[in-house]
């Protein structure tokens, strides 16, 4: 891809790029991957996928997104749309490999951890905090707050009762609140402004 074309693509909005991609322009879709690839890879890791597996799922998710790009009509953020695809792809993989049921039944304690304090720049390490959650809690919290799924959608995707998902989310949030709200430190609200 030439430099001028790259510059032109970089100046376009996600919706414009998606429209071009829907017309078969692969370089426009490549630009979308450049913009949102790290977000999707990060989400999958936060859901509990390991490095190589997370990247495999992220690749499959982007390929699926390209196939179904005509369905994206710009009503929400492209990042949110593709993250939902990635989260569902990961769950399908867990189901196919019969790991999902085991994960849902796994003990609810994650790694014991001390409160996660903000660093000198005021940033809070969400990834460290998520490690203190049980696998099911981490999955549910990441799906609802990272991929933007509703509790109902998460329950359907996980094939779990809605009440169970709500419990996992509630417990997960309680643990995160303890970890992410260090006394006297930067609050969760303040971390964004500084970071």
């Amino acid at each position: 891809m030439s430099g001028s074309q790259q510059t032109r693509l970089a100046s376009l909005h996600d919706v414009e790029l998606a429209t071009l991609a829907a017309a078969g322009d692969r370089s426009s879709f490549g630009e979308l991957v450049r913009r949102h690839g790290s977000g999707v890879r990060g989400l999958l890791r936060r859901m509990g996928a390991q490095g190589a597996e997370a990247d495999d799922v992220a690749q499959d998710a982007f390929l699926a997104a390209f196939e179904g790009i005509a369905e994206y009509r710009g009503e929400g953020a492209f990042a949110g749309w593709v993250k939902k695809i990635a989260a569902r792809q990961y769950l399908r993989r867990l189901q196919r490999e019969k790991r999902l049921a085991a994960l849902a039944l796994e003990a609810e304690e994650g790694e014991p951890g001390s409160p996660v304090h903000a660093d000198a720049a005021g940033r809070i390490d969400l990834d460290e905090a998520l490690k203190t959650l049980g696998a099911a809690e981490r999955l549910c919290v990441s799906m609802c707050y990272g991929a933007g799924l509703s509790h109902g959608e998460a329950a359907e995707a996980l094939n779990l009762p809605l009440g169970t998902v709500k419990s996992h989310v509630k417990r997960g949030l309680e643990k995160l609140r303890t970890r992410l709200a260090p006394p006297g430190g930067a609050s969760l609200e303040g971390s964004r402004a500084n970071g």
Binding site: R34, G37, R41, F62, L63, L188, E189, G195
Partner: peptide
Amino acid sequence: DFERGLERLFAEAPSFPDAEAFASRIEGRL
């Protein structure tokens, strides 16, 4: 507020040193 803050933390993408290679791999597969 806590939930909104959490959503914002989730929206912050971590940086990957191989981000460009990842995009190129997908373009190659396409």
